[in-house]
């Protein structure tokens, strides 16, 4: 399993292909439904440096605030990415993201955006909230907590050996397309229809 340090260069990202296992280390940021809409409504200068050459994690964590005021992630698996399809390619281009972590994959608009901007889609294991929370030893800061609430806020986090699989790369490859096409062929066969 290869290790990938964040922030990361476009060249390193373009070397990745569908099926690669990676362990990420470094700084990233979470963001989901409310965050993506907000990131496109205006250029958010205070958040932008945390997105540049890093990745955004589609995650709504369970978070504990310790007595000293600092935060820790208690449970932190990925959420379904396809809801961000209307925004994702533009968020990547606008803020210079090198990748997205989520689950379930994304569609053509994002796939095209990954190729154009030099970015990848990284699949984390859905529901593996404990395994993934333990790969997040530190929460650095949080944006929009009061406005969006705990699950939807943008959390800046440090990760160590955070496990993901490349399922969409910057060369037009998508594991999700391959699996979907295969399942549709089999479906037609089970229903006694011609493909």
């Amino acid at each position: 399993m290869a290790e990938l340090k964040l922030p990361v260069s476009e060249e390193s990202i373009r070397n990745l292909e569908v099926g690669d296992f990676l362990e990420l280390s470094g700084r990233m940021i979470t963001g989901r439904d409310a965050a993506h809409k907000w990131l496109m409504e205006d250029f958010r200068e205070d958040v932008a440096p945390y997105l540049k050459d890093s990745v955004i994690y589609h995650c709504g964590p369970v978070v504990n605030q310790k007595d000293d005021g600092s935060w820790e992630f208690v449970a932190a698996g990925p959420t379904t990415s396809i809801r961000e399809e209307p925004y994702q390619a533009d968020v990547i281009a606008r803020y210079g993201l090198r990748g997205v972590i989520g689950k379930g994959g994304m569609a053509d608009r994002t796939l095209t955006g990954l190729g154009r901007s030099g970015a990848v889609y990284l699949h984390a294991i859905g529901g593996a909230a404990q395994v993934l929370a333990r790969a997040i030893p530190r929460v650095e800061k949080v944006f929009m907590l009061d406005e969006f609430g705990v699950p939807e806020a943008l959390w800046v986090i440090d990760v160590e050996r955070f496990p993901v699989v490349v399922t969409m790369d910057s060369h037009g490859g998508s594991l999700h397309k391959v699996v979907e096409n295969g399942s549709k062929t089999k479906f037609d066969e089970l229903l006694g229809r011609k493909g």
Partner: peptide
């Protein structure tokens, strides 16, 4: 993950 959640009495999934 199932083992870790049980051992630490923490949510299996964040959702």
């Amino acid at each position: 993950n199932i083992e870790m959640a049980g051992d630490s009495s923490a949510p299996l999934c964040q959702d």
